[in-house]
Design a protein around this nucleic acid. Structure first.
Length: 123
DNA sequence: GAAATGACTCAAC
DNA sequence: CGTTGAGCCATTT
């Protein structure tokens, strides 16, 4: 779905070592106020074959969200993030002030550009 | 095509 | 802090 592609395009721009919240991604993808769609989109992502860095998208509380019974990817997400240099506090949360992604307009344009390319390919 | 679902968020108690 | 309820809307059944 195009809505998903938008979301994926944005998520793919999140640099290593940084994270973004669902609401933030939704906003950047032009889905202001619809963070649930981001969550839903990521839920549909195949964590194995997709090139979308789903692990870099967390909830507004700075915690790593996860779908109930993901095949062992529960601790995996955190492991990946830690490997990228992101530190978790004693409560298993991330300091958003420190790691939250500050997207630049350029990045967003790139994301949308990729999105359009995909659009043409599909067409 | 109506009803249920979902990795969310925000505001109010 | 925690819990609760409302808002959101594409995808699935």
């Amino acid at each position: 779905m195009l809505t998903y592609e938008r979301i994926y395009a944005i998520v793919r721009q999140i640099p290593r070592g940084q994270v973004a919240t669902y609401g933030q991604v939704a906003e950047l993808a032009g889905l202001v106020g619809k963070p649930r769609l981001v969550g839903y989109a990521l839920y549909r992502v195949d964590t194995a074959t997709s090139d979308v860095p789903w692990q870099r998208v967390i909830n507004a509380k700075g915690e790593v969200s996860q779908s109930s019974l993901r095949n062992g990817s529960d601790y995996l997400q955190r492991a990946i993030l830690e490997d990228e240099g992101i530190a978790f506090d004693s409560q298993g949360r991330i300091n958003l002030n420190q790691y939250k992604w500050r997207p630049s307009d350029i990045v967003i344009e790139q994301a949308l550009a990729v999105f359009r390319e995909k659009l043409e390919e599909t067409t």
